Amino acid sequence: MKTFTNPVFQENFPDPGAILAGGTWYAYGTNNATQNVPILTSPDLVTWTPAGDALPEVGKWAERGNTWAPEVIAGDGGYLLYYTARSTATDRQCIGVAYAKTPEGPFADDSAEPLICQAGEGGSIDASPYRDLGGSLYLYWKNDGNAIGQSTYLYGSRLSDDGRKLTGKTVRLLVNDAAWENHVIEAPQMVAHDGKLYLFYSANAFDKDVYAMGYAECDGPLGPCRKAAENPILKTSPAAAGPGHSFLVTTPAGETWLLYHAWPPDAIGSVAPGRQLWLDRVDWAGGRPMVQGPTADPQPVPR
């Protein structure tokens, strides 16, 4: 039996989002010193190879240097990349959308304005797209309220068919009202499993060992959503500190796995090695997801 051991990428790669295209996994992460959106590629979710910068230039509404938490989805005849960057007009983090014909890019954002910019609520970050079984697109994100001492909400909205603008009402789905979440909830991802909808998210201070991950069950793509009583379902272990900003993937064999970042316990807040990329299996029991991790021992590779 072939096995692997975490972390699956030992360099700094925060806030992973991933997509499977043409038999290759592509992971997109928060900016580093030279790249706006670094890409990793993998044949198996375990062996990852750097593959350049997916977004060589941010939109003209933004400046370089704070390009966070990108996620990609197939759409509009190619691929759409939703990313966070610093708006020059508001000096807040805002959300843009860029387009490319291929998942490796280069993506380009030709918009004069960001897609979402809740400047009065601290800004907008952590955009995550979702396509339902009927083909409709939705987007989820967080207002950056903790940047200005306000509450943080996870928002959702329907997207246009081409994925380039919001349509209909914007809904507040969750707020940071649980003790373990403290001042912030962020990093939403909507996932469908066995006919149910789950909104996964992370909470608390990203640069401390209290950062962790939870989820809520939702009645529809725009809620209402109810937080799970057993939250958090992923938290610090002796091998991984502050695990979070997760992304669930389903393999072609139907297995569910979780990509997430975590600090080495002796290097929390470091630039190097920084937040490394981890991978652990997710099991489902009684309609509830259970993360089998953080796991530092050898475990079977995904099928």
Rank of each mutant, 00 (worst) to 15 (best):
T102G: 00
P103N: 03
E104M: 01
E104G: 08
E104P: 00
E104S: 11
E104V: 02
G105V: 00
G105W: 01
G105C: 01
G105M: 06
G105T: 04
P106Q: 09
F107H: 09
F107G: 06
F107L: 06
A108I: 03
A108K: 14
D109I: 10
D110W: 06
D110T: 14
S111I: 05
S111L: 13
A112C: 15
A112F: 09
E113W: 13
E113D: 15
E113V: 15
E113F: 14
E113A: 15
L115P: 11
L115T: 09
L115S: 13
L115H: 10
C117V: 08
C117D: 13
Q118F: 02
Q118R: 12
A119G: 11
G120I: 04
G120T: 04
E121Y: 02
E121N: 09
G122K: 04
S124C: 11
I125D: 13
I125M: 14
D126W: 08
A127L: 07
A127V: 06
A127I: 05
S128Q: 15
S128N: 15
S128K: 08
Y130T: 10
D132W: 07
L133A: 15
L133G: 14
G134L: 05
G134V: 07
G135T: 09
S136F: 03
S136N: 15
L137C: 12
L137S: 12
Y138A: 12
L139T: 10
L139I: 12
L139P: 04
Y140Q: 09
Y140H: 06
W141Q: 02
K142Q: 12
N143I: 03
D144P: 05
I148G: 01
I148F: 00
G149R: 00
G149I: 02
G149K: 02
G149C: 02
Q150D: 12
Q150F: 00
S151M: 02
T152S: 15
T152C: 14
T152W: 04
Y153M: 02
L154T: 03
L154H: 02
Y155A: 00
G156V: 09
G156E: 11
S157E: 06
S157V: 04
S157M: 03
S157P: 00
R158S: 14
R158K: 15
R158N: 07
S160E: 06
D161R: 10
D161C: 02
D162W: 11
D162L: 10
G163Q: 09
G163I: 01
G163P: 01
R164S: 09
K165N: 10
K165S: 15
L166R: 06
L166P: 00
L166W: 02
L166M: 05
T167G: 07
T167F: 06
